[in-house]
Every structure is written in C-alpha cells, then in structure tokens.
Amino acid sequence: MEKNFLEIKDLKKSFGNGEARQDVLRGMNFTVKKGEFCVLLGPSGSGKSTLLNIIGGIDTPDSGFVSIDGDKLEDMSEKQLTLYRRKHLGYVFQMYNLIPNLNVKENIEVGAYLSDNPLDVEEVLTTLGLQEHKYKYPNQLSGGQQQRVSIGRAVVKNPDILMCDEPTGALDYKTSKEILALIEECNEKYGSTIIMVTHNEAIQYMAHHVIRLRDGVVRHNDVNEKRIPAAQLEW
C-alpha cells in the first residue's frame, strides 16, 4: 500500500450559471494508495457524490485532474473512458439497479462479462451468501439481498477500484453492517481499492483512509491507525 494509485489534483466543479452558480468542488486534492479502503465522508451537498462520479469517469471536472495509476482521465476520449470503467472500475449505488428479468446469478454475470479476468461467479455467490438465492429474480429479494447482488456484480469484475455510493443508504442497521462486512471482505480478499461515499460517521472506523469533505474542499485527510472490523461498528 505504498504507491499512490489515485491522485486528485485541484479538482473544481460547479453547476449552473450566474447567480444560480453553485461551486460543488472547489479545488480538491488528495491521493489514495492501491488496495486502500478509503471513505469519503461529508454531509449532503459537500460534493462527495460529484467527486465519486468524476473519479468514476461518468462526470467531468471544470478544472484539475484525476489520475489513476498515472493515467489522467481528462486525456481520455469517451471510448477510452468507457474502456477505463470497463477494465478498472466496479460500481455500487445506493439503489441496486438490478436488471429485473435476469436472476441473481445472471445479474452477476452481467459484471463478469465486462472483465478480462473475472472472479468465479459461483465463488462470488458463496462469498456474498447468495448461493441459495442465485436463481431468484430481484423482485423476490429483500433490499439487503439486492444490494449484495449489486456488490457481486461490481466485485466479480475483479476491479482495481470499487466505487460505492452510499451503499447502505437504503438499508437497515443490521443489513448495513452485513453489507459493509462484505465490502471489507472484498477489499481484503481481492485487494480492490475501495472508495466509498457515505454520510454515516461510523463507517470511517473501518477504513484505512478517511477524507472529510465540506463545501467542496477536503477538510481532513486522515489515515486510520486503529481500524475496527465492520461487524463491530455501532451507530
């Protein structure tokens, strides 16, 4: 975990014009090392989701840059960005966004299809505790189970970075902890770099690296010396 894998430099982004102009990111700087579990913490409107979208290559900054493993995203064409997302990223959203007429296993295969070296789908199903549900359709699953599938879909790609946007935002306490434990396991087991956006303060204790955002800038950039396993988190 020595090398800087992700570098964010002077990132700025605003929406609207004139009086309605709103600066969401106002010169953001930080780095993330490979294999790190990084949490972006902040209240609503702090710019954390916008930041995640820019890192994920689905949104563009007004200025500054994002570089991953030395490659700057701003230099990439739309096609290259798609390829970048395809080869390096996994996405987990607050809403699970599963394909309704594909079963659990097939939804995970949707992720596996994109990767050159995907993980074994069956193994992922086991890891996520979805073996017994693998032939069920999304509408037959609980919210927590659907989120597991959505994590499965992202993880099975064996991505360099797993982007998680409020993955527990729509879940209850117990299920949230289970999901966090799974993400933690993916980080440890598969070595994926995790960038998780959350407003849940408790989650910071399980991360290697905590970045606090407020009003579009980094307020604190801390390395967590004493991590607590997800299962022991309380909020």
């Binding site: 994920g56 689905i58 096609k79 798609t82 390829l83 970048y84 997302r85 395809r86 080869k87 990223l89 996994g90 996405y91 959203f93 809403m95 966004n97 599963l98 394909i99 309704p100 949707v110 992720g111 994109l114 959505s150 879909r153 992202a154 790609k157």
Partner: peptide
C-alpha cells in the same frame, strides 16, 4: 423504465 440500470451498466463499462 430501465434508465438507472442503463446508467449503472454504462458506469460499469458497458459501451453504448
């Protein structure tokens, strides 16, 4: 209807 799924797929690397 499937906009968010399409968004997710595109974000995950599915090409247009």
């Amino acid at each position: 209807k499937e906009a968010t799924v399409i968004g997710t797929l595109r974000a995950s690397g599915y090409s247009k």
